[in-house]
């Protein structure tokens, strides 16, 4: 199921936050959305999840406009992990993960067990969320999305608050999901992670899509210089590259 933006523009008050974004995202890929602050990355992710209404254009999932889909059908196909790690009530990890089954209106015991296993949460599943570390909570929130077994996983800066080990662990889970056929779209600030772990990178600047392609092409020194205003170059081998300034 391909997820596409067809000339999507989003306006907030008088500001054009996204300007005619055109892209076709493929299942099986990890796609990173990068760009400087205020470029419209989170807005694009929200538009893909139909959480903001485009002023023009549409988001299409396998020939169907997501805005026209029933909310539960959309939720079964598109899982969204917001940047905020808010959990209002001190539920157990297992109950938190089970929220991912809400669009399916079932208990989904097997799917919940599987998501808990994928995120290595077996030992923590009865613990209240308030007792988890930041990394454990991030894994639990990802497991919540995985429990819904969506075709698409959209995550807004899921690695931002994590140390390196937890970042790599979460990327491993997301890679497994992509290899199993899901589409994964991540908003990432860390260009090195995007370079080394994404299959495809979209770069936004001031609401416009300025680069779209393989990490090597979309995160070239020229794009980084134009997008972020930073002179930088990549060193190392593909898969373990580092950005130096």
């Amino acid at each position: 199921m391909m997820l596409s933006c067809e000339s999507v523009s989003v306006q907030r008050e008088s500001t054009l936050v996204l300007d005619q974004i055109e892209c076709q995202l493929m299942p099986g890929d990890i796609t990173a959305i990068c760009g400087p602050n205020g470029a419209g990355k989170s807005t694009l992710l929200s538009a893909l999840a139909n959480l903001v209404t485009p002023a023009a254009g549409s988001v299409v999932l396998s020939d169907r406009d997501v805005a026209q889909m029933h909310p539960l059908t959309r939720a079964r196909n598109i899982g969204y992990l917001p940047q905020s790690a808010e959990v209002a009530w001190d539920v157990s990890v297992r109950n938190l993960v089970s929220l991912g089954r809400l669009p399916h209106r079932d208990a989904g015991e097997a799917e919940i067990r599987q998501a808990i296993g994928l995120c290595d949460l077996e030992a923590l599943q009865d613990r209240p969320v308030s007792t988890l570390s930041g990394g454990e909570k991030a894994r639990a929130l990802l497991a919540r999305v995985l429990a819904g077994q969506p075709q698409w996983i959209l995550a807004d800066e899921p690695l931002a608050a994590l140390d390196i080990a937890h970042q790599l662990a979460m990327l491993k889970v997301l890679r497994e999901e992509a290899d199993a056929g899901s589409g994964v779209v991540l908003v990432l600030h860390d260009l090195s992670l995007a370079m080394n772990y994404a299959d495809r990178v979209l770069v936004l600047r001031e609401g416009k899509l300025v680069a779209d392609g393989t990490p090597e092409a979309a995160l070239s020194p020229e794009v980084i210089a134009n997008g972020w205003g930073v002179e930088a170059k990549w060193i190392g081998e593909p898969g373990s590259r580092a950005l130096i300034y």
């Binding site: 929200s46 999840a49 959480l51 909310p71 939720a75 598109i78 899982g79 969204y80 992990l81 917001p82 905020s84 808010e86 959990v87 209002a88 009530w89 539920v91 938190l96 929220l99 991912g100 809400l102 669009p103 929130l141 919540r144 819904g148």
Partner: peptide, 10 residues
Amino acid sequence: TLGEEAARSL
């Protein structure tokens, strides 16, 4: 419980 944005996505 997960906030309004996550609830809408569900």
